[in-house]
Every structure is written in structure tokens, then in C-alpha cells.
């Protein structure tokens, strides 16, 4: 029974991804026929030479959305299980803020995204910021047993880094400031081929590495004490969780801006919908569900001629999901 309903869920999500992916390729401000799109994807040409670039850009951006959404969602899932709190996620815990601070230091310092060195610098700064926040959280977690309090600490990190970034603005020039602000709105567009290659590789490799956490995650639902008793090395698991979630969230944040809500809403929703309790199943389902939501959000952004910022759309879609799940959990009297 359970298996069948999970397979149906996976089927629906994948179908949704295919439909949205195709719509994202086909629809846009420049109307094209499917024949044109097929032809261009097959390497053909169109009357307007810009069209092949447009299709390429639509394709790239869809790929980025799929990977970024998936990465944020599994990062959120792992953090929710680890902190045993359905409200945890890269955004809430201040991990995205940490990455943002890293990016701000580099961008507002005047380094441009274009150059390879600048690129690596920003990625590294983002990762350092994200992982630093996670370590800080873990340190604080030693003194705070209550996980809601820990979330508040995470939120405070968010405000704190936002304040630091505001201070950085004082020294930044207008262009860098504007660049940072635009980045902060979030977008899946704007990655060139080499950036896309780095992004795709990193996200896929890290997401696959997350499967190392299947057994630890299965065990951690019972808490660290029980997890340790069923053969999980809690210390090394904790380290891997910090590294994987921190780096995943940081990479997405660096390339797409601090994209909110996907990291909380998707794992919550999937954990309600999926019957299997095995993270070997939950992880990939959360990934594709994150992809679906991100692709959907990006589709709405594109249909507005990019005038709606991505974060506005993810908030409008994500916040109601989060509230719905909280209400549903309370109804079923599930303890947090």
C-alpha cells in the first residue's frame, strides 16, 4: 500500500517537472513554436540568431532551478531531522545569511562575479560564511536543549549578519551595492556556461554524497542517544551534516541569491505526503519536490517578464505550505 502511494507521488512530481520544464522552454516573452524549440535544442538555427541563445538561457535557467530547488530542499530536510524541528531550514537557521555575509564581503568589496577568480572567491566566502554559522549554532546548541530556542538563535544570526551587511554598505560604491541588492532578490538566471558547469557538478556530487546520511537520518528521528545505540557515529554524522547542508545551501545562495522558503516548505510537505520512513526514499523525493517547486516559482517569475523577484514568489507559494503543515501537525497532535 505504502509503496504504491509513494510511487504514485514520485510519478506525479516527475510528471510535473517534465511539464513545467517544457513550458519553461516553450513559453516566455518571446513566443516560439514547439517545432522551433525542438529544432534549436537539436542544434538547429532560427531566423533570429538570438533565439538559440534564448532557448539556451531558458534551458540553463530551468536546470539551475531544478538543481537549486532540490539542493535547498534536501538541505532543509537534513537540518529538520538533525535538529528534530520542522521549522528548521537553511534560511531559518541563518545559514543563508552566513553565506550572504560571505558574498557581501566579496561583492561589496568590489570583486565582480564575472572573473573565474572572483567566482571562486565568492563561492568560498559563501561556504565559509554558511559553515561558520552552522558551527556557531552547534556550539550554542550545547547550551540550549530546546530546539525552538535554537531556531530563535538562528534567526538572530540572520538579523546580525543583515546588520553587518548594512554596515558594509557604508563603504561600498553604488554599483556594488545595487549588484548586491539585486542578487538578494534571488534569481535562477544569469549563469554562464562555465558557472553552470561548476554549479551542476557541485550540486550533483554533494546531493549524491547526502545518501551517505541515509542510515544516520533514519536513526536520528529517534534522537542522537538512540541513533548512537544503533550504530551511528553521531560525531562524524554531525560533521557531515554541517558540511553537506552548509555547502549545498551556500552554493545555491552564491549563484541564485538567498532563496527562501523552499528549504523549509518542501521537506515539511514531503514528510507528510511520503509513507516511507526510509531516507533512501525521502531524500530523492524531497529533492525532486524541491525541483518542482523551484521550477514552478521560476515559471511564475518568467511569466511576469522577470518583474516579480524569485523570493516574492517562493514566499507566496512557500509560506502557506508551511502554515498548512504546522496546522496539520498540531491537529494530529504530533510533538515537535
Amino acid at each position: 500500500m505504502n509503496l504504491r502511494s509513494d510511487i504514485a507521488l514520485i510519478g506525479v512530481i516527475i510528471l510535473g517537472i517534465f511539464i513545467l520544464f517544457w513550458m519553461n522552454l516553450l513559453l516566455g516573452d518571446v513566443p516560439m513554436k514547439s517545432a522551433d524549440v525542438f529544432n534549436l535544442l537539436a542544434g538547429g538555427t532560427a531566423d533570429n540568431p538570438a533565439w538559440s541563445y534564448i532557448v539556451e538561457s531558458r534551458l540553463n535557467r530551468s536546470i539551475v532551478a531544478i538543481l537549486a530547488g532540490g539542493a535547498l530542499a534536501i538541505s532543509g530536510l537534513i537540518l529538520q531531522v538533525f535538529f528534530r524541528n520542522p521549522l528548521a531550514g537553511p534560511g531559518v537557521l541563518g545559514i543563508t545569511s552566513g553565506a550572504s555575509l560571505g558574498v557581501a564581503v566579496v561583492v561589496l568589496g568590489g570583486v565582480t562575479m564575472g572573473s573565474l577568480l572572483g567566482n571562486l572567491g565568492i563561492i568560498l566566502a559563501g561556504i565559509i560564511g554558511a559553515v561558520a554559522v552552522l558551527f556557531l549554532l552547534l556550539f550554542i546548541a550545547r547550551f540550549i536543549r530546546n530546539s525552538v530556542t535554537l531556531l530563535v538563535a538562528g534567526l538572530m544570526f540572520g538579523y546580525f549578519t543583515a546588520a553587518l551587511i548594512n554596515i558594509l554598505f557604508l563603504w561600498a560604491n553604488e554599483t556594488a551595492t545595487r549588484k548586491y541588492v539585486v542578487w538578494g532578490l534571488g534569481s535562477f538566471e544569469g549563469l554562464n556556461q562555465s558557472e553552470l558547469l561548476i554549479f551542476t557538478t557541485l550540486i550533483i556530487v554533494l546531493s549524491l554524497l547526502c545518501f551517505m546520511l541515509v542510515k544516520p537520518l533514519n536513526a536520528l528521528v529517534a534522537g542522537t542517544d538512540y541513533a548512537a545505540s544503533i550504530g551511528i557515529n553521531v560525531k562524524s554524522t554531525r560533521l557531515l551534516i554541517i558540511l553537506f547542508t552548509g555547502v549545498l545551501a551556500a552554493i545555491v545562495t552564491v549563484y541564485c541569491g538567498p532563496v527562501g522558503f523552499i528549504g523549509i516548505a518542501v521537506p515539511q510537505l514531503v514528510r507528510v505526503l511520503v509513507k516511507s520512513k526510509n531516507h533512501a526514499v525521502i531524500l530523492p523525493v524531497v529533492f525532486i519536490a524541491g525541483s518542482l517547486l523551484a521550477l514552478g516559482a521560476d515559471f511564475i517569475v518568467r511569466m511576469s517578464s522577470n518583474s516579480l523577484p524569485l523570493n516574492t514568489v517562493t514566499a507566496i507559494v512557500g509560506a502557506p505550505i508551511i502554515i498548512w503543515v504546522i496546522v496539520k501537525m498540531n491537529q494530529r497532535n504530533v510533538s515537535f
Binding site: 529538520q80 536520528l220 514528510r271 510533538s335
Partner: peptide
């Protein structure tokens, strides 16, 4: 005391 995170 035990607590399970999730709808197990």
C-alpha cells in the same frame, strides 16, 4: 523517555 520526529 522517547520521542520520534516524524509520523512513524
Amino acid at each position: 523517555k522517547s520521542n520520534i520526529f516524524g509520523s512513524h
